[in-house]
């Protein structure tokens, strides 16, 4: 099928995420200044710029190779907590994709595998005020929408909306993981930077992938 999730479509997703991170870099850093250490925007921008540069320098042959390359680049370039977490996310997604273009169900399974990787690496759970608070509802919403038979574009839109709601819902939470947890009760009242960048990842999927899948 022409409208499958091939290496070009996933590359477009990664590039759109990188563009969006660059656009929101200052906002992410400002959120991190309130409850963290003021580096999330700069770190994610450095990592995603490097990931896009690597795609240009050595174009991967298939979807799994592409997401593996992105994951390895993030692990090698970002540091902090975001590097291992986003790196593990893309590496696990790659592991769940084959060399062939993915269909929408395979993409949903890969997204779930990425989520499981983040949980294993970070040992956090929903409600801890982390990126999981956006990623978990996004996975749930994508799977539910596909199960209802919705087209891929609509299912992605539902996933992105769920990620956005999850991001907004981090505001009142008291952080239990990451540097924000050192603030205790003072972390409440602030939006989590990791959940914010994860919502951008899902928005980027809507922009780049809605015309694909099937």
């Amino acid at each position: 099928m022409a409208d499958q999730l091939d290496v070009a479509a996933l590359g477009a997703w990664v590039r759109e995420f990188a563009r969006s991170i660059a656009e929101h870099k200052d906002e992410l850093t400002a959120l991190d200044s309130a409850i963290g250490d003021a580096d999330h925007g700069a770190n994610m921008d450095r990592g995603m710029s490097a990931a896009v540069a690597a795609l240009e320098a050595s174009p991967p042959a298939d979807p799994a190779a592409l997401l593996k390359q992105v994951g390895m680049t993030l692990v090698s370039k970002v540091g902090g907590a975001s590097g291992p977490l986003y790196g593990t996310f893309f590496l696990r997604m790659a592991g769940a994709l084959g060399p062939d273009p993915a269909d929408d169900q395979t993409f949903a399974r890969a997204l779930r595998a990425g989520l499981d990787g983040v949980i294993a690496r970070g040992k956090a759970e929903p409600g801890d005020k982390t990126m999981l608070d956006a990623l978990t509802p996004a996975c749930d919403a994508l799977e539910a929408a596909l199960a209802e038979g919705q087209p891929f574009g609509a299912a992605l839109t539902a996933a992105a909306a769920a990620a956005g709601e999850g991001r907004d819902a981090t505001v009142p939470l008291v952080a239990r993981k990451g540097r924000a947890s050192y603030l205790g009760e003072r972390s409440a009242g602030h939006q989590d930077p990791g959940a914010t960048s994860t919502a951008l990842l899902l928005d980027a999927a809507v922009t780049a992938l809605s015309g694909s899948g099937g």
Partner: peptide
């Protein structure tokens, strides 16, 4: 040495 206030990477 990592970036400022950012852990170094595994490499």
């Amino acid at each position: 040495a990592g970036e400022v206030f950012t852990s170094p990477v595994p490499d």
